[in-house]
């Protein structure tokens, strides 16, 4: 098996072969999830804790379902109104949790790098469910699986990522993953929402969405956060929709069989026209949600295998690596 990572902190540390291994396993879980009895026991007896320092409904429920379908004991901890408010530091929280002997820890945190910090302090496998503006690896993996199923391949595609690139961890992880798999990436959006140093990313940059969409195989829209709409980054919602919102006219410039993606939740009429989002011939947005559960099951499964192997070696007197 070609998956050696102990934690899933980002796409950056995964080799292309590890990505493929994970996606192949996720395909099996897609099949499982479509059966009436959606249960496996590969995580039987393991404890999975979902620790969310930032609000999330979709990602958290997706991880919860993934763990439960694989037979893990899953606990959700909503950290916004807990000991953090009482002044406990992240590391103390990690040590407290560690003492409860979890096997899999799923963490979302508003600061970039916070999940890496936490992973250093615990003895279980850690999955990054989004840290600040850094990475959101399972989102990129589920996007990759969705693309591979829709297009039949994950190489040599022209992928247009549109919207708030600067503040998006989804964009970061996606452009790392799609770059590793040798795709052509275009970043489209207003300059105020482009990260600094973007010219060095090895992507093509477009301010004009019409230009950027020409011939694209995949159109990946990003959510525009409410707090960016107040005139600080863009003048108004309606001007944004006019210039960077995906509508039928702009989509017509992409390849005829281009697919439309969105990580959700959508702002209809801001970054995407409702009719495009609902067009079953173009939009794979619901597929992304379905693939999300399967990809997270695969990630939990692979990390659990490596964790067991590590512990087996440690028990046999070896050194934990």
């Amino acid at each position: 098996m070609s998956f050696r990572a102990r934690h899933l902190l980002g796409i950056d540390h995964l080799a292309p072969s590890e990505i493929v291994t994970l996606l192949d396993l996720a395909e099996e879980y897609v099949a499982l999830n479509r059966r009436t009895v959606k249960h496996s026991d590969v995580l039987e007896g393991l404890t999975q804790i979902n620790m969310f320092f930032e609000n999330s409904t979709r990602t958290q429920s997706s991880f919860e379902l993934a763990g439960k379908r694989l037979g893990a004991d899953v606990m959700n901890m909503s950290m916004q109104n807990s000991s953090v408010k009482k002044g406990e530091t992240l590391i103390d929280t990690a040590l407290t949790l560690n003492a409860m002997q979890p096997d899999l820890l799923v963490v979302r945190h508003p600061n970039s790098g916070a999940v890496n910090l936490l992973a250093e302090k615990v003895k279980c496998a850690v999955i990054n469910a989004g840290d600040g503006r850094h990475e959101h690896p399972t989102q990129a993996l589920l996007d990759a699986l969705t693309i591979r199923r829709a297009k039949g391949r994950l190489q040599r595609l022209t992928v247009a990522i549109c919207g708030d690139i600067a503040h998006s961890r989804v964009a970061r992880s996606n452009l790392i993953l799609l770059g590793k798999m040798e795709n052509r990436i275009r970043l489209i959006g207003p300059r105020t929402l482009m990260p600094s140093g973007v010219a060095d990313f090895g992507c093509e940059i477009y301010e004009d969405m019409r230009e950027g969409l020409k011939g694209a195989d995949v159109v990946m829209m990003l959510r525009l956060q409410r707090e960016r709409m107040d005139g600080g980054f863009i003048p108004s919602e309606r001007e944004y929709f006019h210039r960077w919102g995906l509508d039928a006219e702009k989509l017509a410039l992409a390849a005829p069989d281009a697919i439309v993606m969105h990580p959700g939740p959508m702002n209809r009429g801001v970054e995407i026209d409702g009719t495009i989002a609902d067009d079953i011939n173009r939009s794979v947005i619901q597929d992304q949600v379905e693939m999300g559960v399967a990809v997270r099951m695969a990630a939990l499964d692979l990390l659990a295998r490596n964790l067991r192997a590590d512990r087996g070696r440690a028990a046999a007197g070896g050194v934990m690596v």
Binding site: H134, S196, G197
Partner: peptide, 15 residues
């Protein structure tokens, strides 16, 4: 400092 490094690591940065 703003640039590729800060952007890839998602650290708030300034020019």
């Amino acid at each position: 400092t703003s640039g590729k490094f800060a952007s890839l690591y998602g650290i708030p940065a300034v020019s």
